[in-house]
């Protein structure tokens, strides 16, 4: 029991550390890559190639004045960013990054906890993520925040349906809701991207909308709403929303990798050490591809109009996802 708690604690700390560093450098990578796409160089001043920029940003976040607007609902105003960050971090706990390993005489899975209904857990936590956005906008006592959070809330509720339905197809093929089980069902390069290409397209689009990223970034449309639901937030409270957004990006990329691209599966070769490391490397590489896609899309696509967004979500994505569920169900039943 004590050993179990200890191992879990160590895993949590390691995951948290990796995650925070990853968020800092994804953000730097984003600024660099988008900069290149717009014929700029991006940040270069702090450290070699601007590599210490995230540290400088962190110090700035901590030292900034923490403002609470007049007439804000104080309790909810403080609660909202915490909720956003906690829920974002919570969903990462069930993500497996590699197979079961034997290390220093301990046999453990490369994930914080393996639950039977891992995918449902992630969907549940994502569905609660709306509260962070909605409460932030409402409690700030600002019209821009309120409009941003209303947009964000309705967008997230609408696309959540498509997101969940898109994942039903792969779950039917794998016959389990456990993320580890889904990956193991894709052994020998039987990746679900091939039979479930429609589901993948729907999932990817809905994931962009769930994380409020371009082209679905209406909740924080700079041109019309200031900064949307986090307009009134400053210093570390703003940093928390920022952190939550990027952690959510990592989570949906991980889920896409696990469910459609075989997770850590890939050809194994070389000496024992390399064999042990390769699965994790495959996983990280696949996730990085998705993160690059996020940044690429941000540098490329314009924003949707609100009625287009809703029409697309309800009239295209959900019917497509439902059709995919029906066809997959028929095929699975006939086999």
């Amino acid at each position: 029991m004590v050993a179990y708690l200890l191992i879990t604690l160590v895993k949590c700390l390691v995951v948290l550390l990796i995650l925070l560093t990853a968020v800092a450098y994804i953000q730097l990578a984003e600024r660099k890559i988008v900069g290149r796409m717009q014929s700029r160089v991006g940040p270069t001043r702090v450290g070699p190639f601007g590599l210490l920029q995230p540290a400088a940003d962190a110090i700035k976040f901590i030292l900034k004045e923490d403002v609470t607007p007049d007439g804000a609902h104080k309790f909810l105003y403080v609660l909202a960013p915490m909720l956003a960050v906690v829920l974002a971090l919570l969903s990462i706990t069930v993500i497996p990054v590699g197979p079961i390993v034997h290390l220093f005489g301990i046999t453990t899975a490369l994930q914080i906890t393996d639950i039977n209904v891992g995918l449902l857990f992630i969907l549940g936590v994502t569905s609660l993520g709306v509260y962070g956005v909605v409460l932030a906008g409402w409690s700030s006592n600002s019209k821009y925040s309120l409009l941003g959070s209303l947009r964000g809330g309705s967008q997230m509720i609408s696309y959540e349906l498509a997101l969940g339905l898109a994942l039903v197809g792969p779950v039917m093929l794998a016959g389990t809701l456990s993320l580890r089980g889904i990956v193991e069902a894709q052994a020998h390069l039987h990746w679900f991207i091939v039979p479930q290409i429609v589901a993948f397209a729907v999932y990817l689009t809905a994931a962009f909308a769930e994380t409020n990223r371009v082209p679905f970034d209406l909740p924080d449309a700079e041109g019309e709403l200031g900064a949307g639901y986090h307009t009134e937030y400053s210093a570390m409270k703003f940093a928390m929303f920022f952190l939550a957004e990027y952690v959510n990006m990592i989570t949906v990329s991980c889920v896409a990798t696990l469910v459609f691209f075989g997770g850590w599966m890939g050809p194994l070769f070389g000496p024992a050490l390399l064999r042990a490391l390769l699965p994790v490397l495959y996983f990280v590489a696949k996730v990085c591809c998705f993160l690059f896609l996020y940044i690429w899309v941000r540098g490329t696509l314009p924003r949707f109009r609100y009625d287009q967004l809703m029409g697309f979500g309800w009239k295209v994505m959900i019917p497509l996802a439902l059709a995919n569920v029906m066809v997959t169900g028929l095929v699975v039943a006939l086999h």
């Binding site: 857990f121 969907l123 549940g124 569905s127 609660l128």
Partner: peptide
Amino acid sequence: FIQIIVYAGAIMV
């Protein structure tokens, strides 16, 4: 988890 998704995540939102 269905309780969370349906009640806390959808209806209460």
